[in-house]
C-alpha cells in the first residue's frame, strides 16, 4: 500500500511538532507535509496535482489566509472539491463547527490537550475508510471532539 499523503496547515510551530510526533508515534504508513497558512496551502495544491494529498488537516485561526478562507478556496477548485479536509482547531464554538461543515469540511477535530489523546484521534481519523464514509456523510459521524 502506498503511503497515505497527509498535509498539515497550521501556523503554530508547537502544534505542528505535536502533530508530527503523534503521527510518527502511531506507526502508520504516512507521509506528512507541513505548511504555515492557507495561502501557502493553496499555492502548494495548485502548483502540481501530484501534490494533492489524501487528507488535509486545516487549522482555522491562521495569519494571511485563515482556515475558513482556505477551505472555501479548496472547494472552489474543481480538482480539489472532493479532497478530504479535516478541520484541526482549538475552537469548540458551535458556530465555528457549523460554519466549517457548511463550507465543505469533512471532519472536525478539536485540538486535544493531551498527547495520548492526540495520538488516539489521529489513529482513528487516518484509519477510517474514507471512501466508504464519504457516501454516507453525516456530521455526527465525523465530528471528533476530544
Amino acid at each position: 500500500m502506498d503511503k497515505l499523503k497527509i498535509l498539515l496547515v497550521d501556523d503554530d510551530e508547537d502544534d505542528r511538532q505535536f502533530f508530527a510526533d503523534a503521527l510518527e508515534g502511531i506507526e502508520l504508513n504516512t507521509d506528512l507535509h507541513q505548511l504555515e497558512n492557507g495561502k501557502s496551502c493553496m499555492e502548494f495544491l495548485l502548483k502540481d496535482t501530484d501534490n494533492t494529498p489524501d487528507l488535509v488537516f486545516l487549522d482555522l485561526n491562521m495569519p494571511i489566509m485563515n482556515g475558513f478562507e482556505c477551505l472555501e478556496a479548496i472547494r472552489r477548485t474543481p480538482h480539489l472539491k472532493d479532497l478530504l479536509v479535516a478541520i484541526y482547531s482549538t475552537s469548540s464554538a458551535e458556530r465555528d463547527i457549523e460554519e466549517t461543515f457548511e463550507k465543505g469540511a469533512n471532519i472536525y477535530i478539536k485540538k486535544p490537550s493531551s498527547f495520548s489523546e492526540l495520538k488516539k484521534s489521529l489513529k482513528q481519523v487516518v484509519k477510517m475508510n474514507w471512501a466508504y464514509h464519504l457516501n454516507d456523510f453525516k456530521k455526527e459521524n465525523f465530528l471528533l471532539k476530544i
Binding site: D15, F18, N61, T90, A93, K111, P112, S113, S114
Partner: peptide, 17 residues
Amino acid sequence: SHDLQEPLRKIQMFVSR
C-alpha cells in the same frame, strides 16, 4: 473560548508529553 484555552492546552500538552 480561544485565547485562554490555547496556551492552557499547550501547557497540558507539554505536561502530558
